[in-house]
C-alpha cells in the first residue's frame, strides 16, 4: 500500500468503485482512518434525500399557491414564463457560493438555493396545467353550483395533476442532482465522494457518481409510480 500512498491510482475502475461502495477503503489523507463503505454511502444518501425533500417542500410551498392562483385566474402567463426561463439560467454553484457569503453555509443556505431550482418548473407546469383545463368543464362546474375553491379543488386540480406532477418531477430531479454539490456549503451528501477526490481517491469519485446516478434514477422511477397512483382513474381510461 505504500506505493499506492505515494502515487495516486491513475484512473478509477468499476471494480474499485464497487469495492468502495461495499466496504471501507484506505485513504491517503485521513491518517489511517478508512473511508467509504456501505454505511457511509447510506448515511450520505440519506442526507441527500433529506436535503432534496426540504428544498422540494420549500419550492412547493412557494410555487404551488402562485401557480394555482395564476392558472385559475388565467393571468400572469408572462410572469410564469419569465420565472421558468430565468430559473433555468441560474448557475447553482454561484448561487450557493453567493449565499454562503450572505447568510453563511449550512442547511438553510442549501434549502433556499436548491428551492430556487425547484420553483420554476413547478410554477410553470402548475400554471399551464390549470390554465389548460377545458373552460367548458369549468363552466359546467360553476353551473352546478360549485364555489371557485371547489372548482379549483374538484375539477381543475385533478385534471391538471399529470402536468403539475411532471413539474414536480422535473424539480425533484434538478434538486437531487444539484444537492450533489452541497458539501461545498457544509452539508455532506454523496457529492462529498465526488468533490473530495484527495480523500476518497478516484475509485471513491466513481463510486459517488454511480450512487448519485442510481439515487436520481430511483427518485425518478418512484415519482413516475406515484404520478400513476395520483392520476384520477377517469383520466387514465381516457388516455388509454
Amino acid at each position: 500500500m505504500i506505493g499506492a500512498a505515494l502515487s495516486p491510482a491513475p484512473l478509477a475502475s468499476i471494480e474499485g468503485a464497487i469495492e468502495f461502495i461495499l466496504s471501507p477503503q484506505n485513504s491517503n489523507v485521513t491518517g489511517g482512518k478508512k473511508v467509504g463503505g456501505f454505511d457511509q454511502v447510506v448515511e450520505l444518501a440519506v442526507n441527500q434525500i433529506e436535503l432534496t425533500l426540504l428544498a422540494l417542500a420549500l419550492s412547493l410551498l412557494v410555487a404551488l399557491p402562485i401557480g394555482l392562483y395564476l392558472g385559475h385566474r388565467g393571468t400572469g402567463e408572462l410572469f410564469a414564463t419569465v420565472i421558468g426561463n430565468a430559473g433555468r439560467a441560474v448557475p447553482e454553484l454561484a448561487l450557493i457560493a453567493f449565499m454562503a457569503t450572505a447568510i453563511g453555509v449550512g442547511v438553510l443556505n442549501l434549502t433556499i438555493a436548491l428551492a430556487v431550482l425547484g420553483v420554476p418548473p413547478i410554477l410553470a407546469n402548475t400554471f399551464v396545467g390549470i390554465h389548460q383545463v377545458d373552460r367548458a368543464s369549468v363552466d359546467a362546474a360553476r353551473g352546478i353550483g360549485m364555489t371557485e375553491f371547489e372548482v379549483l379543488r374538484k375539477v381543475e386540480i385533478p385534471l391538471a395533476i399529470p402536468t403539475i406532477f411532471a413539474g414536480i418531477r422535473g424539480a425533484t430531479i434538478a434538486i437531487v442532482a444539484t444537492a450533489t454539490i452541497a458539501p461545498l456549503a457544509g452539508v455532506l451528501t454523496l457529492g462529498d465522494f465526488i468533490i473530495n477526490q484527495n480523500v476518497y481517491g478516484d475509485n471513491g469519485v466513481l463510486a459517488g457518481a454511480i450512487v448519485v446516478a442510481l439515487l436520481a434514477l430511483a427518485l425518478e422511477f418512484s415519482l413516475a409510480g406515484l404520478q400513476r397512483l395520483l392520476t384520477s382513474r377517469g383520466l387514465k381510461l381516457s388516455s388509454a
Binding site: 454539490i181 457518481a209 448519485v212
Partner: peptide, 11 residues
C-alpha cells in the same frame, strides 16, 4: 445528474 456523468466517464 451531469456532475455524476462527468465522473462516470472517468474510467
Amino acid at each position: 445528474p451531469s456532475i455524476a456523468f462527468f465522473f462516470l466517464l472517468l474510467p
